[in-house]
Design a protein around this nucleic acid. Structure first.
Length: 601
DNA sequence: GGACCTT
């Protein structure tokens, strides 16, 4: 039998196979004393849902069948009609009570979704497909599997397919089209794409599917220690919550358990959740480090590691914690796990750091759609520090008038936590219902603020950068950069809170002498995005030409693969810690091995 | 300066 990816993973996970990366340590599963000298019994079957659907073929995944898996569906569009209604097979919603055997009740994560607002199916899927038609995508690395056009041509399994329909996803987004096949063959990935582009699903589907198909996982029985199979890290608590909620939907009735841990919330409750079982752990770094130190969590069985907003996770403040989690715990090394990094921007210094965590990875960049391209109108106004408040009030008054009764949602970014509080106070005092989110507020306050903003109760949210990344808040029509950030990448992330998933948005920035270092990168970015650049900004940009970081070489993209730029001066192979193109990890080897890629020829 | 454990 051919060595498949699933075998490689299972082998690595159970310790029966070396990791394949030069000299990587072999880590046998921990067996607690009271269980030694016994015949090991599987902790549980990995895929209880197969009880309903019949056994899933363990290794019959995309590409291994040797036939064109796309041929099951006639063409790229044929899935529209079939998935538009739920009348297909199974009936989905109706039959859940009966088929559960002894499992405890799993809350329906789709529950109150439809009650919130009445929107068209297309809209509720969060994706404007027309806006995605001609998004440029670039990949690099060896043996990149081709993208898929429909979910149907990927064999993710019945339960997951049902959840995809429940989410009303009819067609994969560009990042999903490319990421899912890459991920299903077990390759490491560094991907540039926005959160609103369907990133979470892109890495969750293969993780869930992989866990379900994994052979009965034999996990150690630690004393109150849990052994998740997948770890998803993100830089803020709210983003971790969001990823958790989304992942719960994808994992509904698959038997795959998802738990989130983050700071600011009582730890005991999170510990109880963990003890009830966890396959996929979503976490912020601080709380996870805490749990690791208390030995409540072991990363020994991790097969999948995903870092969301990876550029933030690897910058100065976070990097030590991430290294601690990834490199100084019992987590399998690169090659012994599958690692996926996602971010809207990937500066090359960060790519260099990130390559420590990866093995023979594929670099993927999806055009910046819905962000700094045509869907967001970007304006820059010269506003002195002392005039900012009255100027903001003018903007708010103006949009109050043209609205139809309901105030459109406006997200105002400021530099400091104190600044956020005082602006909120001032806005409220002037008749504008505002709230604020920042790191000095308690977690319940932060969550309340976000809910109140989303619901339109307080249609103005004053925020620090805690809200700059990844948060998916539908219907934000205006982002105001009351204080501009120092880094152009932060600007890109901030304005990305509007114009999400194909909808249009407006971004206004207040610029003054304090922002000179941003003049050039901002002018360049706006020009790239076909925005009107005011003359005064062009002038400032030419003055301080060599001031800012000038590393936006990706054109329409967030970044480009730094390995391409380095190809001449990198060290001879074998010496460094980085696997560039050829370096063999277990997966790279298996994948590139005899005959394996033939399905894609 | 902002984000990221606990008390």
């Amino acid at each position: 039998m051919r060595t498949s990816w699933a075998d490689a993973v299972d082998g690595a996970a159970s310790g029966s196979n070396s990791y394949g990366v030069g000299g990587a340590s072999h880590r046998p599963a921990y067996v607690p004393p009271h269980l030694r000298n016994r015949t090991p019994t599987p902790e549980r079957m990995a895929a209880p849902s197969t009880l309903n659907n019949g056994p899933l073929p363990v290794n019959d995944r995309l590409g291994n069948s040797g036939q064109n898996s796309g041929s099951r569906w006639a063409g790229p569009r044929s899935d529209y009609g079939k998935q538009g209604n739920n009348s297909g097979r199974g009936g989905g919603w109706g039959n859940r009570g009966g088929s559960w055997g002894g499992r405890e009740l799993e809350a329906n994560p789709f529950g109150n979704e439809d009650v919130e607002e009445i929107v068209s199916d297309q809209e509720s899927s969060g994706i404007n497909f027309d806006a995605y038609e001609d998004i440029p995508v670039e990949t690099s690395g060896v043996n990149v599997p081709p993208p898929v056009n429909t979910f149907a041509e990927i064999d993710l399994g019945e339960a997951l397919n049902l959840n995809i329909r429940r989410c009303k996803y009819v067609k994969p987004t560009p990042v999903q089209r490319y990421t899912i096949p890459i991920s299903l063959v077990g390759r490491d990935l560094m991907a540039c794409a926005q959160t609103g582009s369907g990133k979470t699903a892109a890495f969750c589907f293969p993780i869930i599917s992989g866990i379900m198909r994994g052979q009965a996982v034999q996990r150690p029985h630690g004393f109150r220690t849990v052994f998740p199979l997948a770890l998803i890290l993100s830089p803020t608590r709210e983003l971790s919550c969001q990823i958790h909620m989304e992942t719960k939907k994808f994992a509904y009735q698959t038997g795959v358990k998802v738990v989130v841990v983050y700071g600011g919330a009582p730890i005991n409750q999170q510990l109880r959740e963990l003890e009830r079982g966890v396959d996929i752990l979503v976490a912020t770094p601080g709380r996870l480090v805490d749990l690791l130190e208390r030995a409540k969590v072991s990363l020994q069985m991790i097969r999948y590691l995903a870092l969301d907003e990876a550029d933030r996770m690897l910058d100065m403040g976070f990097e030590p914690q991430i290294r601690k989690i990834v490199e100084q715990t019992d987590m399998p090394p690169p090659g012994g796990r599958q690692t996926m990094l996602f971010s809207a921007t990937f500066p090359r210094e960060i790519q260099r750091l990130a390559s420590d965590f990866l093995s023979n990875y594929i670099f993927l960049t999806v055009g910046r759609v819905g962000s700094s391209t045509d869907l967001i109108v970007q304006r820059v106004e010269f506003v002195q520090e002392t005039d900012k408040r009255s100027h903001l009030m003018d903007l708010l008054h103006a949009q109050k008038d043209n609205g139809s009764g309901r105030q459109p949602l406006t997200l105002v970014f400021v530099e400091t936590k104190k600044g956020a509080d005082s602006l909120e106070y001032w806005l409220c005092g002037n008749g504008f219902p505002a709230t604020t989110i920042h790191g000095d507020r308690t977690q319940p306050e932060r969550e309340l603020a976000l809910r109140s903003f989303k619901s339109g109760k307080t249609p103005i949210l004053v925020a620090t950068d805690v809200a700059a990344r990844g948060l998916d808040i539908p219907h934000v029509s205006h982002v105001v950069n009351f204080d501009l950030p120092n880094d152009i990448d932060d600007y890109v992330h901030r304005i990305g809170r509007t114009g999400r998933a194909g909808k249009t948005g407006l971004a206004t920035a207040f610029f003054n002498e304090n922002n000179m270092s941003l003049a050039k990168p901002l002018a360049d970015l706006m020009q790239e995005a076909n925005q009107e650049v005011p003359q005064w900004l062009t002038r400032y940009a030419s003055w301080g030409a060599y001031g800012g970081k000038n590393r936006r070489s990706g054109g329409r993209f967030g970044s480009r693969d730094f390995r391409k730029e380095n190809s001449f001066n990198r060290p001879a192979s074998g010496g460094g810690s980085m696997d560039y193109y050829g370096g063999g990890g277990a997966y790279g080897g298996a994948y590139a091995g005899a005959g394996a890629p033939s399905a894609w020829d």
